[in-house]
Computed example of a mutant assay.
Amino acid sequence: MSGLRVAAIQHEIVWHDREANFARLAPTIAGAAAGGAGLVLLTETFSTGFSFDTPGIGEREGGPSSQFLAEQATTHGLWVGGSCPEVSPEATDDDQRPSNTFVLAGPDGTVHRYRKIHPFSHAEEEKYVRAGNDFVTVEVDGVRLSLFVCYDLRFADEFWTLAADTDAYLVIANWPAKRRVHWQTLLRARAIENQAYVVGVNRVGSGGGLEYSGDSTIVDPLGEVLASGAGGETVLFADIDPAHVASTRAHFRFLQDRR
C-alpha cells in the first residue's frame, strides 16, 4: 500500500520546562520511528504547556523547540510536528506577541510553519497571541497534509476550502477535558464532511488549572475510527492511504455538490 504511517503521540507536558519535555519525548519518538512511522505528531505547545500569557514564553523563530523537532526528524529520517510559541521575524518592537506555530520538520532539513489562524477569544487569547493568516498544505510521500491547531477545528469552512487538495488534516491540540465531547465529535465530522483522514492529537494530564483527557483519534475518510486513546500517555499508529481518499470521493461524489 502506498501512503504514510502516522504516529500520534498523546503525552503529558512538564509545565514551562522545555528541556524536561525534550528529554521525555525523544525516546517516544524513537519508539515511533522503530514502529515504522514516517510522520510523528506531538501536541500543541508540546514543550511549554499552553501558557501564552506568561511573559517571555515566546521563542525566536527557529528556537529550541523548533530545533528539537528538526533534530528528531533528521536523526530518525522521518517528519516530526508539534506547535510552540514563536515570535515571527516580522514582529514589531511594540508587538512581540508570539504566534502559536505548528512546525513540521522533515528528514532533509525542510521546515514548514503554520501559524494558528484562530486565537481562542473565549479566553481572550488574542491579547497574547498573534493570529496567522495563511493555510499550509504539505505533501509527504505522496500524501497531502493540511495543518491546523486546536480551536481551528471548530471552523468547518476552512477545512472545506482545503478539501480538494487534502488527503489528511493534522490537528494538534491542548483541548480541555470539560469539552471532550466537542473534540471527539468535531474530529469525526471534519473527516466525514471532507472525505479525508483526520489525525487529532491532544495532550493528557493537567496544566494551567485545566485537565486534559487526551482522546487523540485518527479517523478515515468514511468517519471510521482507526485508532484512539484516552486518559494516559500512548502512541497511536495508522496508515494514511491517498488512494482510499480518492476512491471514497469517486464513489460518494459529495464534494462536487457543495455550493
Rank of each mutant, 00 (worst) to 15 (best):
209 G>M: 00
45 T>I: 06
127 K>C: 05
62 G>H: 06
222 L>E: 15
147 L>Y: 02
80 V>G: 05
181 V>P: 04
78 L>T: 03
163 A>R: 09
231 G>W: 01
166 T>D: 10
155 F>H: 13
212 Y>R: 02
258 R>T: 12
129 V>T: 12
172 I>N: 01
54 T>A: 08
146 S>N: 06
24 R>P: 00
54 T>M: 08
219 V>G: 02
125 E>Q: 15
134 D>W: 05
93 D>E: 13
223 G>M: 08
198 V>W: 12
234 T>D: 04
122 H>Y: 10
96 Q>L: 15
216 S>T: 08
202 N>L: 01
60 R>G: 13
187 L>T: 14
236 L>K: 00
50 F>R: 15
99 S>P: 02
94 D>P: 06
238 A>N: 10
112 H>S: 09
172 I>S: 01
101 T>G: 10
84 C>S: 13
74 T>D: 03
94 D>C: 10
197 Y>F: 14
226 L>W: 06
86 E>Q: 10
214 G>D: 04
239 D>W: 07
29 I>R: 00
85 P>A: 13
116 K>A: 14
135 F>G: 02
241 D>F: 09
154 R>W: 09
214 G>W: 03
33 A>L: 10
105 A>E: 01
103 V>L: 04
163 A>D: 08
231 G>D: 01
119 P>F: 02
52 F>I: 01
62 G>W: 05
191 A>H: 04
216 S>M: 03
152 D>V: 05
135 F>Y: 12
129 V>Y: 00
60 R>S: 14
42 L>H: 04
45 T>W: 06
21 N>R: 02
2 S>F: 15
167 D>N: 14
52 F>W: 01
129 V>F: 00
208 G>S: 06
172 I>Q: 04
125 E>Y: 05
137 T>H: 09
101 T>Q: 12
30 A>M: 08
187 L>M: 11
28 T>A: 07
146 S>F: 10
194 N>L: 07
90 E>M: 10
204 V>H: 03
241 D>K: 07
159 F>N: 02
211 E>G: 14
134 D>I: 03
105 A>F: 01
133 N>L: 09
215 D>P: 00
42 L>V: 08
3 G>Y: 03
133 N>Q: 08
208 G>V: 00
4 L>D: 02
110 T>I: 06
125 E>N: 09
121 S>K: 14
190 R>I: 11
38 G>R: 05
3 G>V: 06
